[in-house]
Simulated scan of single mutants.
Amino acid sequence: MSPHGNPDEVWRRLAALTPARIGLGRAGSGLPTREVLRFALAHAQARDAVHAALDGEGVRAGLTGLGWAAVPVASAAPDRATYLRRPDLGRRLDEASRERLRDAAGAPVDLALVVADGLSARAVHEGAVPVLAALAPAIAASGWSLAPVAIAEQARVALGDEIGAALRARAVAVLIGERPGLSSPDSLGIYLTFDPRPGRTDAERNCLSNVRQAGLPPDLAAFKLHWLLTQAFARGLTGVALKDESDRLLAGEPGAAALAAPR
């Protein structure tokens, strides 16, 4: 029989193309033991990612290696359990962090970067510094001024709005651990907001999702973020009105080079 006509072989080939759980097989009316154990491991890894503490000093060391200053901040959620129960507290700074940012703020800057634990500190530990290392040369080449990088604990995406406003930044990019899936406990998200201030909505942000080696690689994420930043500064906006068309540049489409020019 041809391999293409063998159901087991067809499923094996399909399963090799994706981390999704397909073609798991069966043992009687249930799953094979190996698949039950794989599911339990993935579930445990996702739970660990949600509850793990952010290694702020490790992140700071990585930023120091890039020659960037950093400032630690925290949301109004006093601990991880409260953070998970009260998303609203994760969206605003505690008073000590507000004072720290007031001291760190200087003249207005083009960009504020926030590295935030979110729902997966593991994603931050593995992905944040590689993305920023790939982004650093593009920031320098563009001549953008940069605020001290905020390293945020117990943080939700919207915390970046208050941080960006406090640092007097034209735009803020939040690198944050995403909610873990059962095959992606290390997924980093990047949220970009022009003219950050409390009260901004998700419709006013651009998002790059699934940033990790098995998804959107860090160097490609940095390329896309730089493209979006260039367009955000030129157009004075982010969100639903700004579409990521950077793939056209990568594909070398005719006329795509015009997309790289500020408008």
Rank of each mutant, 00 (worst) to 15 (best):
A147D: 10
W227G: 00
A166H: 10
A116R: 07
L225I: 05
A147K: 08
V36L: 15
D79Y: 04
L135G: 07
A147Q: 08
L159W: 06
L37F: 09
F194A: 15
F39G: 00
A136K: 14
D8S: 13
R85L: 12
D103Y: 00
A107P: 10
F233Y: 13
I190E: 02
V36P: 01
H51S: 06
S187M: 11
A136D: 15
G143F: 11
P19W: 03
L208V: 01
T193F: 12
A74F: 03
D55F: 12
C207S: 13
A107W: 07
E178Y: 01
F223H: 12
S246W: 01
P185R: 08
A104R: 10
A70G: 12
R168E: 06
L135F: 11
G127K: 05
P130E: 05
A171F: 05
D244M: 00
G255I: 02
A256I: 13
P72V: 07
R47V: 11
E99C: 02
V129S: 11
A150Q: 08
A42Q: 10
A165Y: 02
L31E: 05
L146R: 04
W11P: 02
A261Q: 14
A257K: 12
A158K: 04
G160T: 04
I22H: 05
A133T: 14
L192E: 01
H125S: 11
V174Y: 08
S187P: 11
L89S: 07
R98I: 02
A234Y: 06
P180M: 05
D48F: 06
G239D: 06
D79F: 10
R26I: 02
I139F: 09
D55C: 11
G239N: 01
G255N: 02
S246Y: 00
A251F: 13
E204K: 02
P87L: 07
P19Q: 12
P196D: 04
L113V: 14
L24K: 08
A46C: 08
V59R: 07
P137Q: 08
S120C: 08
T238W: 03
W144A: 03
W68R: 11
P72F: 10
A76M: 06
A221K: 09
G106H: 12
R80D: 06
A141D: 14
A158L: 14
T82H: 00
R38A: 15
G215W: 01
D103T: 14
E153K: 11
A150V: 09
V50D: 04
L159T: 10
A69D: 14
C207M: 07
E245D: 11
P218F: 01
P217S: 03
R102W: 03
